[in-house]
Design a protein around this nucleic acid. Structure first.
Lengths: 212, 212
DNA sequence: CCTTAAATGCTAACCGTTAGTGTTACGGTC
DNA sequence: GACCGTAACACTAACGGTTAGCATTTAAGG
């Protein structure tokens, strides 16, 4: 059992962090497109191949902590309180993540992302991965006997919520609107929970008690 | 105004088509990654720069007709019958497009797409563009006085429906499930029209006070 | 016919990314 | 402590998508 504080691992983590910090600094200073991988490597005093041994691509340098994101989402499902409804738990997590993205300190980064097509594209593929992970987590919950399609659909909707709320002028209000829709979509998948159940072609489901 | 059948435009269109056909043939014969742009250019008997004057990227060679896709979606909104409900109109169009994608003749292409991360990523960015166009079309409809967020959300959901149904084992059933959810989400945005209101487990609309 | 501009060709390069090949330094073992 | 396996890193060179710069053809219109 190697202790988690081996010198090797510390050095590796330090190198990775130095690369990420240097890259982000240069990107913000000169612009993402104006900084090459060779620049980052030189400034961080490592070889180009070392950069790519820590990060799969240039874009990955910007989204350094996306694994945290993914894990927080799945844990919002797996570690929620017993019998706690799914959607509110997800909403809490998305709300926290949106707040994190829209914080003032993160603003320059997202401005850079929005300005670069390559970064936007990369973010898109990340979102797809996150949606798949989330769908797996939902499908694995024994309290939620849903089809694969429903799990994947709800997962996509939730990820969409994050993306749309982040870009909205008023993220809080946007989350309200979007999650009202997601609640309704989720409710439409379980026509038999309580006896009310207006099933059939389910044109219009019930409208949730509007808080206004 | 020059007539749309000038010799120049015909030749240009022919060149474009020859490049696209050659590229798709080579991709299917040897695999997407095994064929370089220089191969495509040589086989189509054009210069590399000519390829890029017709197509923005290598991936765009595969999704040659995505503009048709986008146009069909927006027209499903703008050209639908007077007072026809939005969602069923969109569902019809998505259903047709999914059928088109899952046809036997298109199977090898989508197999290639699913096998290539670059193509998948490109398809993702396409979907985002399509969703934005669709959101614009929905927002422009005077019969649908919705907020920007609601329009963008519904647009994303519909695009998600296409993506998920295309990948599902049974696309027809998947579309049924997903559009039942989308109908409910859409209905939840208009609480005042006419409420049949079969309310089940009352979802809480008011979250957002305590983030922790 | 002659001018103009669009379409295409050719060359060379840029940049992200990877393969191949060593070299170093840490970790576990004797 | 000496030893060995291996993870981390360096270096070079190259590949492949993409673009700039400039030359050349060819259709369009006066």
């Amino acid at each position: 059992m190697t202790l988690p504080t081996g010198r090797r691992e510390r050095k590796k983590a330090a190198t990775r962090q130095k690369i990420a910090d240097t890259a982000l600094r240069l990107f913000l200073e000169r612009g993402y497109d104006a900084v090459g991988i060779r620049d980052v490597a030189a400034e961080a005093d490592v070889a180009v191949t070392t950069v790519f041994s820590h990060f799969a691509s240039k874009e990955a340098l910007v989204f350094e902590q996306d694994q945290d994101f993914e894990q927080r989402l799945t844990q919002a499902v797996t570690r929620r309180a017993r019998h706690e409804p799914l959607i509110p738990a997800l909403r809490r997590e998305i709300e926290a993540l949106v707040r994190h993205c829209t914080a003032d300190s993160a603003a320059p980064i997202w401005h850079m992302v929005d300005a670069s097509p390559a970064l936007r594209e990369y973010e898109e593929s990340m979102r797809l991965r996150h949606a798949e992970s989330l769908a797996m987590a939902i499908a694995a919950d024994p309290d939620l006997p849903q089809t694969t399609t429903v799990c994947r659909t709800i997962a996509r909707f939730v990820i969409d919520a994050h993306s749309l709320a982040r870009e909205a002028a008023d993220p809080e209000t946007a989350l309200d609107e979007i999650f009202r829709m997601i609640e309704a979509a989720w409710a439409a998948t379980r026509p038999s929970t309580d006896a009310h159940s207006c099933s059939g072609t389910a044109s219009r489901g019930r409208v949730g008690d509007s808080p206004e």
